[in-house]
Design a protein around this nucleic acid. Structure first.
Length: 293
DNA sequence: GCGGGTGTTCACGC
DNA sequence: CGCGTGAACACCCG
């Protein structure tokens, strides 16, 4: 799933359906996903669901928390007798548990929370709440859209006017702008879909070294990131792979995506360009060579 | 069979 | 240590 809009969609679902439940049991069907002592969370009540970048944190009332990263194909699915009587459609998950179900949390009031993950890249860590922010993934997370990433902060990162580790260093990044905005330690939450679409929206070529962007382009890119993510919130996220929300429903942003995955298709601006696919930083990169300069 | 996939994470070279 | 690159993780789909 997994970029900021998809993880936020899951967080909202956790807040609506899962917060308030007690965890009665934890069943580990496949090892390697869950880390930590599961007995620490038995009998505890879920008090909050938080998100940092593409990571989730479920707080419990006993000073423990669950830190979760669903990587590419993780799913958190909530089931209870009530929601099953009101059929959710479309439910992409179907029968559950299935062959990709690795962890089952039994909750009170006959509810369950399932963790499915086709590729098993994701992780769930049980640890004292005070240790959660010490995990490198959270500790090293950069500022993120809709939180602390203001346009000024974004501009400073892109043009490298300040960084946490070397405040006096100037000169800018030679790295292409696309891998830079996807670097979670620089900016939190942006992944491959929204990086591609935001660069298209801002008419910036993904190969451009970050330091060559002028003030106007940086401003356009910032606004484009916000715009494509807001569109995705409205559509419930993008379900290119296996992303579903907490009720098993798909999102619909992929129907609106501008260039992501559209190799060989005409540019949405109808400028005569064909969307090209190249590799940048090891990731598929889609852009229109005509309008993205 | 092959290429490609919404993401880290680690190993290695400079 | 910072920076950049490439592979690894595991499995499905066209």
């Amino acid at each position: 799933m997994p970029e900021l809009p998809e993880v936020e969609t899951i967080r909202r679902g956790l807040e609506k359906y899962v917060v308030g439940h007690k965890i009665l049991d934890v069943e580990e069907i496949n090892r390697g996903i869950l880390e930590g002592d599961a007995t620490k969370i038995l009998g505890s009540k879920i008090t909050a669901a938080r998100r940092i970048g593409k990571g989730l944190i479920i707080n419990l009332d006993n000073k423990y928390s669950l830190a979760i990263h669903i990587k590419l194909t993780g799913q958190l699915i909530y089931r209870d007798p009530k929601t099953e009587k009101e059929p959710v459609s479309p439910d992409k998950v179907g029968a559950i548990p299935n062959k990709f179900t690795h962890i089952i949390f039994t909750l009170d009031r006959n509810a369950r929370l399932y963790y499915n993950d086709q590729r098993r890249f994701g992780w769930i860590r049980i640890l004292p709440t005070e240790k959660v922010l010490e995990l490198p993934f959270f500790k090293e997370m950069g500022p993120e859209p809709f939180k602390d990433l203001t346009e000024t902060t974004f501009s400073n990162i892109i043009s490298r006017r300040i960084t946490a580790s070397s405040p006096q260093k100037l000169g800018g990044w030679s790295t292409p702008v696309k891998p830079l905005i996807m670097d979670q330690t620089k900016i939190g939450g942006i992944g491959n879909i929204y990086a591609n679409d935001a660069l298209f929206e801002a008419k910036i070529n993904p190969k451009r070294p970050a330091k060559t962007l002028n003030k106007k382009e940086i401003s356009k890119l910032y606004k484009a990131i916000i715009k494509v993510m807001e569109k995705s919130f409205e559509e419930g996220g993008a379900s290119e792979l296996s992303f579903v929300n907490i009720l098993g429903q798909t999102g619909n942003y992929q129907s609106y995506s501008l260039v992501y995955g559209k190799k060989g298709k005409p540019c949405p601006r109808n400028d005569g360009g064909m969307i090209e696919r190249i590799e940048l930083g090891g990731r598929g990169t889609f852009f229109c060579p005509i309008c993205q300069k």
